[in-house]
């Protein structure tokens, strides 16, 4: 990692170069950043298997409301979660930029929809702060930390917590509602 950061060819983004030069001791994080609603989120690049354009999603009746349905990922059927619904946001109107990010979490492969995928970036772990007790009114369980970039904030998601830990609670709520 350290050798990578010292090579200028590796970091095309100005911010990244600046960060990696600023402190070489901290761990370097490689992230995929994307937007949902007005926020910018990021997940570790190693957990991302692929990013797809929007495809035909088959709804699965009686699944939790944030589950949009299932898709055919080259013969494998995987569930797709609508992150907007998961975060309790309103539905998106213009969906041209919507992408499905396919991740592997705790041995499960699943996809989630985001409004737009921004970029792959490297940040130093030293600029990531633990989440404040309340972030934008979201439950902070699945927020791993907040990365302070020069001009913006990046919310680092904890995928396992996002898709597994409080899922049981969600499921229970669904069954109560139904």
């Amino acid at each position: 990692m350290a050798t990578q950061s010292s090579s200028p060819a590796q970091s095309t983004e100005d911010i990244n170069t600046a960060i990696s030069q600023a402190s070489a001791d901290g761990e370097l994080l490689q992230l995929v950043s994307f937007e949902v609603g007005d926020e910018e989120f990021a997940v570790p690049i190693l957990s991302v298997q692929e990013i797809n354009r929007m495809m035909q999603i088959t709804p699965v009746p009686q699944s939790p409301p944030f589950v949009e349905g299932v898709i055919n990922l080259r013969g494998k059927i995987i569930p797709v979660i609508d992150l907007r619904k998961r975060f309790g946001m309103s539905e998106l109107e213009n969906s041209d930029d919507v992408r499905i990010i396919v991740v592997e979490v705790a041995n499960r492969v699943l996809g989630f929809t985001v409004d737009r995928v921004n970029e792959v970036l490297r940040i130093n772990s030293s600029i990531v702060e633990p989440p404040p007790s309340m972030v934008c009114g979201l439950d902070t369980d699945y927020v791993q930390g907040v990365g302070k970039l020069e001009d913006r904030l990046l919310i680092l998601l904890h995928l396992e917590k996002l898709f597994t830990a409080d899922e049981m609670a969600e499921m229970e709520q669904t069954s109560k509602a139904a």
């Binding site: 699965v60 699944s63 939790p64 589950v67 059927i77 569930p79 979660i81 899922e167 669904t174």
Partner: peptide, 9 residues
């Protein structure tokens, strides 16, 4: 269709 998300139906 064995994901926990899609098992209910």
């Amino acid at each position: 269709l064995d994901d926990t998300y899609t098992q209910g139906g």
